[in-house]
């Protein structure tokens, strides 16, 4: 192994330190070493978005980020989305609108949708569809995912 590199990352608000192989992908560090298995791997080519997490508040595909590149950053995964008050509005809306079936794409989809709503709190359906173009789902046909994101946006905008 190449010489290990130390990383300091805040993961879901918790300070984490590790010595990692420079080639270790962020997604594998999260899953295999931190046990945060809510972030999934669905492809090899940065297409499917199942591995989407937030890096310093922005959505990224953690299969295409080295763990060493996250040094000094804040990472939020699906496990960090629920607050003390319960589910994030997107999580609640995905359930309410039946925005998931097998659930495998769901964490990445929710993380991508959260970035979408951060960037555009009141999107049109068209904007939601384009905002989720980096995330593949094979079960839902996207219909109810889009409904869920619009519902979450509405609840947030009203709130």
């Amino acid at each position: 192994m190449s010489s290990a590199v130390s990383v300091h990352v805040s993961v879901n608000g918790e300070a984490r330190e590790a010595e990692v192989d420079p080639r270790l992908l962020l997604v594998h560090w999260l899953r295999d070493e931190l046990g945060l298995t809510g972030t999934h791997v669905g492809c090899d080519t940065t297409n499917c978005g199942a591995c989407t997490v937030h890096l310093n508040g922005e959505s990224v595909k953690s299969c295409t980020v080295l763990a060493v590149q996250a040094d000094g950053a804040e990472v939020t995964t699906i496990e960090g989305m629920s607050g003390p008050d319960g589910l994030h509005p997107l999580q609640a809306a995905f359930r309410e609108k039946h925005g998931l079936q097998c659930g495998f794409c769901t964490p990445g989809m929710i993380m991508a949708a959260a970035d979408l709503l951060n960037r555009n709190p009141d999107p049109t359906e068209e904007e939601v569809r384009h905002g989720l173009e980096g995330n593949l789902c094979r079960c839902t046909g996207y219909h109810n995912i889009v409904q869920a994101v619009l519902t979450a946006a509405e609840s947030e905008v009203r709130a």
Partner: peptide, 9 residues
């Protein structure tokens, strides 16, 4: 370009 996640990086 690609998708938002890619554009963010």
């Amino acid at each position: 370009i690609a998708d938002q996640q890619v554009r963010n990086r």
